[in-house]
Computed example of a mutant assay.
Amino acid sequence: MRKTLRLTTITAAALLALAPVTTLEAQQPQPRVLKMQSTWPASLTLQDNFRFFAERVEKLTGGTLKVEVNAAGQIVPPFEILDATSKKVIDGGHGIAYYWVGKSKAATLFSNTPAGIVGMDHMDYLGWIYEGGGLQLWWDFYQKELKLNVIAFPILPASPQALGWFKRPIKTLEDFKGMKCRQTGIVAEIYQKMGQATVNMPGGEIVPSAQRGVIDCAEWVGGIEDLRLGLPQVWKYHYTPGMHESASIGELIINSEVWASLNPQHQEAIRSAVMETFVRWWVKWQRQNADAIEEMQTKHGTEILRTPPEILIAFLKTWDQIAAEESAKNPFFKKVYESQKAYAAKVIPAKRFMFPPYSFAANYYFPEKK
């Protein structure tokens, strides 16, 4: 009897000791999960940017906020993520604003394309976003101009991008004219005005089209992505740089109601993760591109050539013409463009004065082979 009583007492004490733990576990809130989708296939390095962001959000919030990362097409078609985010079909997306030029040409200004918007590099553009009023204009663009429940942050510096791949050498603007080339968005409009015949097609169709002779040239991304796509296996001549995406920047979009429902700590974690992702992914990507260029040359015999300057100048002049025409008929485009030009007019001349040309030390330590 005493033994039974003692066991009962011990069991009761053990249960009492466990009770607070069990109650505490029951009180722990379930992590909140944001369902998001990108416009990229899962295999692209651009999707790695999205994955890194999700990892950082989870770590910064101690697992209380998670991002479900989906690739293009897993929930909605890739070019429907903006509307899907606004309608809360998904909580957010990962893409680039120039995909939405069909809604308004002002969209391209929020991807820092083309021409780096009057020459701004990545840091200049981030400066305009965070120090020059650009972020509020971006949110106004989605919410007031397009009437969408969306906010955005800059996250993906997938640039500079090469001019492209060509089946034959190009030495002048005349060589460039008449070629049938894969281009997209507002860049295609610019190249059309420059005399190129452009074709819009998904990345997966570029190599088969090149092999069949349907196109003479193509722009994809450059570096690691061009190598993975197989472009060095179909064309030999690779020209760089290009001004079409000299400093393009992709976006993270979030439904504005979802954003407002997050607590301040979760909002700050997202802001921090966005900035960290921008920098950490970018430095890794630069190394990946350097390795890819080396492989193109040594394994595939790719000729990496300088873009003729007259092509780059013609591109800038054509873009200036389009921007002026759009400013004349689109007040919001003009407002954003004028804001960007005013910021650039302060920063770019100062940087040109303070910063040595990148090629100065590069040519001293690593002379180009003749």
Score class of each variant (00 low, 15 high):
Thr4Gly: 07
Leu5Glu: 13
Leu5Asp: 09
Ile10Phe: 14
Leu15Trp: 12
Leu24Gly: 07
Pro31Gln: 09
Arg32Gly: 06
Leu34Cys: 08
Lys35Phe: 11
Gln37Val: 02
Trp40Asn: 01
Thr45Asn: 05
Thr45His: 07
Leu46Pro: 02
Phe50Arg: 00
Glu58Arg: 11
Glu58Pro: 03
Leu60Cys: 03
Ala72Trp: 01
Gln74Leu: 05
Pro77Lys: 09
Ser86Phe: 03
Lys87Ile: 00
Gly92Pro: 05
His94Arg: 01
Ile96Asn: 03
Ala97Pro: 08
Ser111Arg: 07
Asn112Gly: 00
Met120Lys: 04
His122Gly: 12
Trp128Ser: 07
Gly134Arg: 05
Trp139Asp: 15
Trp139Tyr: 08
Asp140Met: 10
Phe141Ser: 09
Tyr142Ala: 05
Asn149Asp: 15
Ile151Gly: 07
Ala152Cys: 10
Ala152Arg: 04
Ala152Thr: 10
Pro154Phe: 01
Ala162His: 07
Lys171Asn: 15
Thr172Trp: 11
Leu173Ile: 12
Phe176Pro: 07
Gly178Phe: 13
Met179Phe: 06
Arg182Gly: 03
Arg182Asn: 05
Ile190Gly: 04
Thr198Leu: 08
Asn200Gly: 09
Gly203Pro: 10
Glu205Leu: 10
Gln211Ile: 13
Val214Arg: 11
Ala218Asn: 05
Val221Asn: 11
Asp226Trp: 11
Asp226Met: 10
Gly230Phe: 10
Trp235Ser: 10
Pro241Asn: 07
Pro241His: 03
Gly242Ile: 02
His244Glu: 02
Ser246His: 02
Ile249Ala: 09
Ile254Glu: 00
Asn255Val: 02
Asn255Arg: 00
Pro264Leu: 12
His266Ile: 08
Ala269Val: 04
Arg271Val: 05
Ala273Gly: 00
Met275Trp: 04
Gln286Thr: 11
Gln288Met: 14
Asp291Phe: 08
Ala292Lys: 10
Ile293Thr: 12
Glu294His: 13
Glu295Pro: 09
Glu295Ile: 14
Glu295Ala: 14
Gln297Asn: 09
Lys299Trp: 06
Gly301Thr: 12
Ile304Lys: 08
Ile304Gln: 07
Arg306Ala: 14
Thr307Met: 02
Phe315Ile: 05
Asp320Ala: 12
Gln321Cys: 06
Ile322Pro: 05
Ala323His: 09
Glu326His: 12
Ala328Leu: 08
Tyr337Gln: 04
Glu338Val: 11
Ser339Arg: 10
Ala344Leu: 02
Lys351Met: 11
Lys351Trp: 09
Lys351Val: 06
Asn363Arg: 15
Tyr365Thr: 10
Glu368Gln: 10
Glu368His: 04
